[in-house]
Every structure is written in C-alpha cells, then in structure tokens.
Simulated scan of single mutants.
Amino acid sequence: MTDVKAGVEYKINIDGNSFLLDEKKFNLLLYINESGSITEAAKRTKISYRTALHYIEKIETTLNIAIVSTKKGGTGGGGGTKLTEEGLQIVKECKKINAIMELHRDVNELEAEILEVDASKGIMKIKMEDLTMTMPLNKKYVVGDKILALISYDNIFIMLEPQASSIRNIFKGIVTEMRLQDEMVRVKIDIGGVDIFSDITLSAGKDLDLNLGKEVYIGFKALSIATLKL
C-alpha cells in the first residue's frame, strides 16, 4: 500500500486544464484503484462517502474528464468502481513524482548570488564564498539575484583526480566526515569553506580509499542543479 507523503500536492495538467491534487484526493484515487470500491476507498482515506463523491466530481469538473467508472451489479452482484484510463494516468504521474522525490530526498542547499548571465551560451554563473558554479540559464534571474541552489547528494561525483568530461563544475576539497547510512557512505567534503555531501556505495568508498583529511575532487553536471529565488 502506497500513500502520498503528507503535505505534498501535485499540479495535474490535462488539455490546458489544471487541478491541485492534495494528499486525501490522491489517496482516494489510489485506494479506489486498489479496492474497486468508493466506499472502501473513502474509509481508508478517512473521509465520508459523500466527501469522496464531492472530491471525484470536483476533479472531473475541473479537468473536464471522467476519472472513475462505476458498474452496477445485477442480481448476482459483480458491480464495482474502477479508474478510467485518465484516472490511472493521474495516479501513475503522481507515483512517478513520489519516486523522484524519494530518490532525491537529501539535497545540498547552497545560498548563492547570480554573478553572470550569458544568454548567447544559455548559461549563468553563481557565486558562494570563493566558489563559482556554472548552470543552465534561467531567464527569470538577473545579475545580483540571491538564490538557493539545490544539488542531490547522489548527483555529486567524487574523483581522486580531475578528469576530462562534460561536467562543468569540478572542485578540489577535503574529506571532513564519513558515516554509514542505509548501506551507503555519506561523505562530507569541504570545498573552500562550503560543505558538500555525497552519497556513494561502500565498494566505491573502498575503491577510492577514502579517509578523513584526504584530498579529493568533486563534480556535478550543471543540469543537476535546481534553484529557488530567495
């Protein structure tokens, strides 16, 4: 049984119509798909049957689609409710978002300033402490804007020597902390006064012969950086 994470909302867009699906509405659709019953789904979602019908009607009216199909049983029974193809697609998209969020639940949060914008190359440079990073151009930003750069721990590559590659951002640092977490090694690296965390496998840690105080290089692709304007 899979539930949406508390507090998460999904913006669903279909043919130009959009709807914000919250925790209860997502779980209602999920449980309808699992149980084949609106009554059972409402009970598991902890809402009334009337509220469940209201949720379904609101989603269908806003998106201008049918998301459930109800079949009445005859004298021998056999009735039930199932999601339409559109309803199943909504659940699928939300599950995909859940999986991505779970995969990238730990991120490095770096406060930075837009240092340079190069529209011709489609890139911009951000600055934090004495470090400069390159990332794809966001036309909403201008030089001087303060932003929060987010980089997932598992998007940080650790190298013993800088290597020629498509990775634009490579920095020299020192390993300051190592700890085992969920069969992975979480490595903390100081790159010029900025702490960066990277999650690597146990075997990768052994291959790199990592230990506290060791000098390493870290790298990450520009496309792996997500940003928020402060």
Rank of each mutant, 00 (worst) to 15 (best):
G73C: 05
G73S: 06
G74Y: 06
G74C: 03
G74D: 05
T75P: 14
T75Q: 13
T75V: 11
G76M: 15
G77M: 08
G77T: 02
G77V: 04
G78N: 08
G78F: 07
K82H: 09
K82Y: 11
K82V: 12
L83C: 01
T84D: 00
T84I: 01
T84Q: 01
E85A: 07
E85P: 05
E85M: 02
E85K: 04
E86F: 03
E86H: 05
G87L: 01
G87P: 01
L88M: 04
Q89A: 05
Q89C: 03
Q89V: 02
I90K: 00
V91L: 01
K92W: 00
K92P: 01
E93G: 08
K95F: 04
K96D: 06
I97R: 01
N98M: 11
A99S: 08
A99N: 10
A99L: 10
A99Q: 10
I100M: 14
I100Y: 15
M101C: 12
E102S: 09
L103E: 14
L103T: 08
L103Y: 12
H104C: 14
R105M: 15
R105K: 10
R105L: 12
D106R: 11
V107Q: 11
V107R: 11
E109I: 14
E109N: 11
L110V: 05
L110I: 05
L110D: 02
E111Q: 11
E111R: 15
E113D: 08
E113N: 11
E113H: 12
E113T: 10
I114Y: 07
L115M: 13
L115C: 06
E116P: 07
E116D: 06
E116K: 09
E116R: 10
V117Y: 07
D118W: 05
A119N: 09
A119E: 15
S120K: 13
K121L: 13
K121D: 12
K121M: 13
K121C: 12
K125D: 06
K125S: 15
K127L: 05
M128H: 14
M128I: 15
E129A: 14
D130C: 10
D130H: 14
L131R: 10
L131K: 13
L131N: 09
T132Q: 09
T132M: 08
T132R: 10
T132Y: 14
M133C: 12
M133D: 09
T134P: 08
M135N: 02
M135H: 04
P136G: 06
P136W: 07
N138I: 05
K140F: 14
Y141I: 09
Y141N: 03
Y141V: 04
Y141Q: 08
